[in-house]
């Protein structure tokens, strides 16, 4: 539980950080909250030669409204997310989910950028970002580009980030006023990754579901968007048969690993239940 030797860098600007990452290549890793990377380094499963600490970089923090979008700086901590009135008002599902991440100590250090950029299937925020239709600003030596969350995740710890690129901010289209939302997470204890979790954002019209997106956490190598399940509920009043159909559709795309949280069959089964519960709660919250 003792990391190997590494060099430490603390750039002051995004440009410097990007330059460092580009010149140091594969041997360098950016350091945000460190809650994924540092434990891996202690186990020597990760052995970066260079750490580029982003805590000194200006302009990577903060939550702001940009027209119809909410923009969150990558180095914003989960704690700051929880403290934000803007988030509580515009995207309350993020507030609800952040409260289920680890514990207060971790949330003081853990950043939203690190959470979404690491590609860890156990992290909660990626599925939420897919559910909300968010996009990520990636900056590299050849400039900046925006990638949709739904296009970002390629495999466990594999993402669309190119070598030398840095995820600098997240942009979320503000969900419609009166939308219903819920994040249902089954975990064994405080601080645990989800055994299964489901995020739902929906809107209603005339007592029926008008739009719906469903995201799934830790039920495959990447976060999932349960599109068939979402389609199954649109236009319905969410009766029991529809819920069952949606859960089955969601289960059909799950491919969790068997681990100490339970065998595959159990994790899919409770994954379906999380979808059902999240839909039910979101439905009850939405105004018609």
């Amino acid at each position: 539980m003792i990391p190997g030797p590494f060099n430490y860098h603390r750039p002051a600007t995004v440009a410097d950080a990007v330059k460092l990452l580009a010149s140091l290549g594969d041997d360098a890793r950016p350091l945000a909250g460190g809650h994924s990377l540092v434990p891996m380094m202690k186990l020597r499963l990760a052995t970066p030669e260079h750490l580029v600490d982003l805590h000194g970089v200006e302009g990577l923090k903060g939550i702001r409204r940009d027209g119809n979008r909410i923009v969150i700086g990558a180095m914003t901590t989960q704690h700051e997310l929880l403290a934000s009135d803007e988030i509580a008002r515009s995207a309350p599902i993020l507030h609800e989910a952040a409260l289920l991440i680890a514990d207060p100590q971790v949330r003081y250090r853990g950043t939203i950028g690190g959470n979404v950029a690491n590609g860890d299937p156990g992290n909660d925020m990626p599925a939420l970002m897919m559910t909300l239709g968010a996009s990520y600003r990636l900056e590299g030596s050849s400039g900046a580009r925006d990638v949709a969350a739904s296009e970002f995740y390629q495999g466990a710890y594999f993402t669309a980030l190119e070598p030398g690129e840095l995820l600098t901010s997240i942009s979320i289209p503000a969900p419609a006023a009166g939308h219903g939302y819920a994040y249902e997470k089954l975990k064994r204890k405080v601080g645990d990754y989800a055994t299964a979790a489901a995020a739902v954002v929906l809107t209603m019209a005339s007592g029926k579901v008008a739009t719906c997106t469903i995201g799934l956490t830790n039920l495959a190598e990447t976060p999932l968007s349960a599109e068939d399940a979402a389609r199954a509920v649109i236009g319905t009043g969410l009766d029991a048969a529809t819920l069952k159909k949606a859960a089955a559709a969601a289960e059909a795309i799950m491919s969790p690993a068997a681990d100490a949280r339970g065998p595959v069959e159990y994790r899919k089964h409770v994954g379906g239940i999380m979808v059902t519960r999240a839909l039910t709660r979101a439905f009850a919250r939405a105004s018609s």
Binding site: D103, R188, V190
Partner: peptide, 27 residues
């Protein structure tokens, strides 16, 4: 839930508090 478990090959799979159940005040 608190157990020290070995898989069939003799690997110990509960080597940290992630998988060795250590309840907090919440649980």
């Amino acid at each position: 839930g608190q157990e020290i478990r070995y898989d069939d090959e003799g690997n110990v799979v509960t080597g940290s508090f992630m998988d060795f159940f250590m309840p907090t005040a919440v649980e």
